[in-house]
């Protein structure tokens, strides 16, 4: 069977998928948090900028965001040619960098919305009490509201991150040799085994998704127990 005979290629492809997910996932959490602070904050200009950004990013197909970073960003002087890291059998090059940035910019707008739903779920009294003891906006957010909002938004955040796992496949279109690209190559070379190949790669994604989903359920339970 094609996949078993080339199992090292299969693993390497999912390795890229996994790295894309982890790096873009962490960065999108960071950027999403900044965006949500801008969106609920007192400075109108920032609120407006964050809202515009989220609306645009959420309504643009991810393929076009990728296309932007492959073709328009170089005009702005943003290139990833400096990125040339080789760890073991993985090469992290310009394609990988552009993919991470595209995935991050796209996903962080969804992270922002997930967090905003979490902020909305924090009881009113929490913010009022925080203000009453004299905390400024930054203090209210970092000390009181956001920690609770993070817990309330674990389920939506988890589904945003699961969507990200699946979205890493778009990197295939733009030259990263991750799982979907590898699947297309295998299917091309071993046409008669296409169904087996498809199932093998589908299982790989299902394993990553289910592992992450189990992890997020665990976190959710733990925080719910802590809050009760």
């Amino acid at each position: 069977m094609a996949v078993l005979d080339n199992f090292d290629l299969y693993l390497r492809a999912f390795g890229y998928t996994f790295f894309l997910f982890v790096v873009a996932g962490l960065l999108s959490l960071l950027l999403g948090t900044v965006l949500v602070a801008m969106r609920v904050g007192p400075i109108a200009v920032l609120r407006w900028a964050a809202t515009t950004y989220v609306t645009l990013a959420r309504n643009t197909p991810l393929v076009i965001v990728f296309a932007f970073f492959s073709f328009a960003a170089p005009v702005l002087g943003i290139t990833f040619n400096w990125l040339d890291v080789h760890i073991g059998r993985f090469d992290f090059t310009a394609f990988f960098g552009a993919a991470v940035v595209s995935l991050t910019l796209y996903t962080s707008s969804f992270v922002c919305e997930a967090l905003r739903s979490g902020v909305n779920a924090v009881p009113l009294g929490q913010a009022e009490a925080a203000r009453a003891i004299g905390l400024p906006f930054g203090g209210v957010m970092t000390q009181v509201v956001l920690p609770q909002a993070f817990r309330a938004s674990i389920p939506p955040l988890a589904s945003v991150q699961i969507a990200l796992i699946k979205n890493t496949s778009v990197a295939a279109v733009f030259g990263v040799a991750e799982a979907t690209a590898q699947m297309r190559a295998f299917t091309n070379d071993f046409a008669s085994e296409r169904t087996a190949i498809f199932i093998a790669f589908a299982l790989g994604y299902i394993v990553i998704v289910e592992l992450f989903s189990a992890l997020s359920l665990l976190l959710e339970r733990r925080y719910r127990a802590a809050a009760a």
Partner: peptide
């Protein structure tokens, strides 16, 4: 569960070759 867990693109490539 199967169709929700796999990327649309993977499904698309498979359907295309199929």
């Amino acid at each position: 569960e199967f169709f929700r867990a796999i990327p649309v693109l993977l499904l698309m490539v498979f359907a295309w070759y199929f």
